[in-house]
Amino acid sequence: MTKIGAVLAFIGVVAGILVSAAEAHAAERGPVTNLPMPRYVSLKTSEANVRRGPSLTHRIDWVFTRRGMPLVVTGEFGHWRRVQDRDGVGGWIHYSLVSGARTGIVDDDLAPVLARAASDAQVKARLEVGVIVAFDKCGPEWCRVKAGGYKGWMEKTALWGVGPDETFE
Score class of each variant (00 low, 15 high):
27 A>G: 12
33 T>C: 02
34 N>C: 00
46 S>T: 15
23 E>Y: 07
34 N>G: 04
23 E>A: 12
32 V>E: 10
36 P>T: 07
27 A>T: 09
24 A>K: 01
39 R>M: 02
25 H>F: 00
19 V>A: 14
21 A>Y: 10
22 A>C: 04
40 Y>K: 04
33 T>W: 04
25 H>L: 04
48 A>P: 15
49 N>M: 08
23 E>P: 00
28 E>L: 12
43 L>S: 09
27 A>N: 12
22 A>Y: 10
49 N>E: 10
34 N>L: 00
28 E>C: 08
31 P>I: 09
19 V>R: 13
25 H>A: 10
48 A>E: 10
28 E>S: 12
20 S>E: 13
49 N>T: 00
38 P>V: 05
48 A>R: 11
41 V>R: 07
39 R>W: 02
35 L>M: 08
45 T>V: 15
46 S>P: 12
42 S>I: 06
25 H>S: 10
43 L>K: 11
21 A>E: 14
44 K>A: 15
29 R>N: 05
34 N>Y: 05
37 M>R: 05
38 P>D: 04
49 N>R: 07
43 L>A: 06
48 A>L: 13
19 V>C: 09
45 T>M: 15
21 A>G: 12
37 M>F: 03
20 S>D: 13
31 P>T: 05
38 P>C: 06
38 P>M: 02
38 P>A: 07
47 E>G: 06
25 H>M: 05
34 N>D: 09
49 N>Y: 07
29 R>H: 08
24 A>M: 01
36 P>R: 09
39 R>H: 04
20 S>W: 15
28 E>A: 11
